[in-house]
Design a protein around this nucleic acid. Structure first.
Lengths: 127, 127
DNA sequence: GTGGGTGCAAATACTTTGCAACCGA
DNA sequence: TCGGTTGCAAAGTATTTGCACCCAC
């Protein structure tokens, strides 16, 4: 299946790459509507699925709706238990972990995801 | 809200602790029906939610329906991309990771989850 | 008796999909 | 023209919730 250009997919990618939060499909839909007023939520979901399947974006699964990340360089995430925000965690990823898991399981491990949990700086009462 | 005994919750816990796979709500519902024929799926979901909220079981979120783990000692999981099975990974957890994330984010980090991805031994063609 | 728990069904949340029209190569 | 893409709506999957009844304490 050869992929063809579409304005919707192009602007979705642009939108996702421009923002540093990790929007849900609905967030992206809302953002795109101002520029493509009649875009549909189905189109947003379809493109998010194909872009993440082809590795151009990352799907982040957790509680509530999935979130998406235009930054595909491997990195960890943090989810605030208070406000729900998902933030990037800029620490080195531990590649050796995959080998340890692989030998423990005798399975072929090709990657891992880490999600940290806690309360973000914005939600912690400053005093 | 003081919790009261219920046969449904008790048997759910027992079932979940007895198995080493990581069943979905529906899996548990199916398993319990043989012993409690008229138990409802709503009751299963309600109890899974309250038990995980109180830390007696763990909810594992990922692709597809949530899975549940009766083993609450912190450990990592592996999801097979081929058959969907979720397995425990018996390697030491990296507690220092939380500190690194916390100082990078200036947030309060109280834990993390790791999910490995790959193909499990059972799904890899033996040759 | 009182309040938490249950079964059932309806509702909600999120995501996918069928289809006819549309558009890029 | 051909086949991928879209908008729209309907369907599908996963989970929660309202309510009357039931049961543990």
């Amino acid at each position: 299946m050869i992929q063809k250009y579409s304005r919707q997919r192009e602007m979705l990618l642009e939108e996702l790459r421009a923002r540093k939060d990790h929007p849900t499909a609905d967030d992206i839909y809302a953002a795109l509507r101002s520029r493509i007023p009649n875009i549909s939520l189905g189109t947003v979901y379809r493109n998010l699925s194909s872009l993440s399947a082809s590795g151009q974006i990352t799907r982040i699964e957790g509680e509530g709706p999935d979130r998406f990340d235009g930054d595909v360089h491997p990195h960890y995430h943090f989810a605030c238990r208070h406000c729900g925000r998902v933030l990037d965690v800029d620490i080195d990823i531990d590649n050796a972990l995959d080998e340890r898991a692989a030998s423990s399981l005798r399975a072929q491990v090709d990657g891992h995801r880490v999600m940290f949990y806690g309360v973000c700086a914005a939600c912690r009462p400053s005093h």
